[in-house]
């Protein structure tokens, strides 16, 4: 039986809740706006089996399981303060289900220097009206909403932007994460001569284009690797069946969910998702409210490399990026 749309949405959503401006609530779910890179190569045993990362305790000289591991912060050389997941979670301000747009700023004032990750907001309520109204108003006024909100027990600064009727959320870097440009070592200024300036302006004008050539947007490095992979597949050289120990429990993740399809359906039908991702809590919650162990299990099934080193956020991100 095909999975119901709202279940799909719930599985893929990073966060669900409401975007508010004034007293107006716009129920939404946050879906990834980016995908992982095309090729990630894996480390293999001499017989071609994908390797697994394990942890060794140097004191006892044995493997230790995930459950025996805690997280510590090194306060002095060799001396750690142990911090639990529960403690970190309790630091998140109220686990709000709200992105409260308290300020609308001219869009061009937010330099892309601040842009970190991007998400698409899809409407989830009974009606698309508040969503459409917010998108249209922001587009017409050329403004973006700015807010802080909590996702996966962390606080984010976020800008909500509208493009052609669709809302996008972009997390912004905090000012403190951006270095001062003084460190780039600019030489003392001497004014640019008019002649130099106009020559440069002309050169820029001449090199101005209307569109970026699509070929220039392609990941050529990944494409070359994939072409070699394909060539080897055709000839059968260096191709081995995936060893069984590496393929486990395929049932649940066998279904590859097409993110684009989830997005399209979310934008389309009005009133089709009365019981939507933002609404009923409880069954099949979104990823952010799963335990780390559940996330780790899913990451293992998806065979996400480096999963054992990931914290909860990174696991969520990696799972989402399998779009």
């Amino acid at each position: 039986m095909p999975e119901k749309h709202e279940d799909l949405l719930r599985r893929r959503a990073f966060w669900s809740g409401t975007v508010t401006f004034g007293l107006v609530s716009v129920p939404v779910a946050l879906l990834p706006g980016n995908r992982a890179r095309k090729v990630s190569l894996q480390m293999l045993a001499p017989d071609g089996t994908p390797l697994e990362r394990r942890y060794v305790c140097p004191a006892e000289d044995r493997f230790v399981s995930r459950e025996e591991i805690v997280r510590g912060y090194e306060v002095e050389k060799g001396s750690f303060v142990v911090v639990s997941d529960e403690e970190l979670e309790s630091l998140a301000p109220e686990r709000s289900r709200e992105i409260d747009l308290q300020r609308f700023v001219p869009r061009e004032q937010i330099s892309p220097f601040f842009f970190d990750r991007s998400y698409l907001l899809v409407p989830t309520g009974d009606t698309r009206k508040p969503y459409r109204l917010l998108a249209e108003t922001m587009e017409r006024t050329g403004r973006a909403g700015v807010a802080t909100f909590v996702m996966r027990s962390r606080e984010y600064l976020v800008a909500i932007l509208a493009e052609e009727g669709i809302l996008r959320a972009v997390t912004l870097r905090f000012r403190e994460e951006i270095r001062s440009p003084d460190e780039a070592g600019l030489p003392e200024t001497e004014a640019v001569s008019d002649a130099d300036l106009s020559a440069m302006e002309e050169a820029i004008q001449e090199a101005t284009v209307r569109e970026i050539d699509e070929k220039d947007l392609a990941d050529a490095d990944a494409d070359r690797i994939l072409a070699l992979v394909e060539k080897k597949m055709q000839s059968g050289r260096d191709v081995i069946p995936l060893p069984e120990s590496a393929e486990e429990e395929e049932e649940e993740t066998g279904k590859v969910i097409d993110l684009m399809e989830v997005l399209k359906r979310s934008m389309e039908e009005e009133g089709s998702s009365a019981e939507s991702a933002g609404g009923k809590a409880g069954r099949k919650p979104d990823l952010s409210s799963r335990t780390k162990k559940e996330l780790y299990e899913q990451a293992r099934r998806l065979d996400i490399p480096g999963r054992s080193d990931m914290d909860k956020d990174e696991l969520v991100r990696a799972i989402q990026e399998r779009g």
């Binding site: 060794v56 805690v70 510590g72 142990v82 270095r179 060893p243």
Partner: peptide
């Protein structure tokens, strides 16, 4: 231009608080 301001933790073996080492292992 970006500085990593994340608070970085080490993974420790709970029992003896020793930082664990990573090893690549054949799953079979």
């Amino acid at each position: 231009a970006v500085e990593d301001r994340t608070v970085h933790f080490r993974l420790l073996h709970e029992k003896d608080r020793a930082p664990v080492a990573r090893q690549m292992v054949h799953p079979g």
